[in-house]
Simulated scan of single mutants.
Amino acid sequence: MTNKTVSDARMPVVASRRQFVLGTAAFMACAALPFPVFAAPTAAQQIADHFSSVKTMMGEFVQFGPRGEQTGGKFFIERPGKLRFNYEKPSPMRVISDGKNVVIGNMKLKTWDLYPLNKTPLSLLLSERIDLGNQMVRDVKQEADLTTIVLGDRTIFGDSTITLMFDPKTFELRQWTITDMQKKDTSVMIFNVQNGVNLDPSVFEIPYAEVHGQKRGG
């Protein structure tokens, strides 16, 4: 991945739990109609295939919420299905996907929210292969300096979509944006990325004992 300097990357702002749910690990209700099928240009499929071939990556990120709030931190991805976001202080948040579930944890309050991975748009980002020939493709746009691929599945997470933005020359992922049912965007820009790294399996372990043992309503 290309190293990228992001202004104000060290100015984290604590976002609410709802914004984490709607943004980083959006969980959407079902809707009736499938997305139309787009004919994917060959170049766009090549980019998607290149991204899918990267089995592990780690780096830094800056997340921009729908109201302009900004957080940063480090991320780890292992395909298929695994992801971890460690947010910088003062944010107490963690996001972990172990391939089956996604949890959003507040380390300060010791609270966790659990969602099936396949009910979130993150499942498309973390899939074994992004197939632009299937009905999950909402749109493909190719420009001189950017290739944008919009993915979604109304039968699973309603009108929520995930937009992937790639460098058309290097095939590197620059950013993704999750748009919720209220058309609010949460964007994640990644930089200082390393591909093909060896990641300890414990990075993606969800503390299920804490998740299921937490106190509710107290």
Rank of each mutant, 00 (worst) to 15 (best):
144 A>N: 10
140 V>S: 01
110 K>M: 15
147 T>L: 04
133 G>F: 08
132 L>A: 08
116 P>Y: 02
111 T>K: 08
148 T>Y: 05
115 Y>Q: 14
113 D>H: 12
145 D>L: 02
108 K>I: 09
142 Q>F: 09
135 Q>T: 14
146 L>V: 02
114 L>R: 15
112 W>I: 01
112 W>C: 05
148 T>W: 00
143 E>I: 03
146 L>E: 01
128 E>I: 06
130 I>E: 03
140 V>W: 05
142 Q>L: 14
129 R>P: 02
146 L>H: 00
147 T>W: 03
113 D>K: 13
126 L>P: 03
132 L>F: 04
124 L>S: 04
118 N>S: 14
133 G>S: 12
116 P>E: 05
126 L>E: 09
141 K>C: 00
148 T>P: 10
131 D>A: 11
140 V>M: 06
139 D>F: 11
134 N>P: 09
130 I>W: 13
118 N>G: 08
143 E>V: 00
137 V>M: 11
115 Y>R: 14
144 A>Y: 08
135 Q>N: 15
142 Q>R: 13
133 G>N: 13
133 G>M: 08
113 D>R: 14
119 K>Q: 09
140 V>E: 04
124 L>H: 05
134 N>I: 11
135 Q>H: 14
122 L>R: 06
135 Q>W: 13
136 M>E: 10
113 D>L: 13
118 N>V: 13
108 K>A: 15
148 T>M: 03
142 Q>T: 13
138 R>M: 13
140 V>I: 06
114 L>S: 15
146 L>I: 06
143 E>H: 04
121 P>D: 02
119 K>L: 04
113 D>I: 10
122 L>K: 02
118 N>I: 12
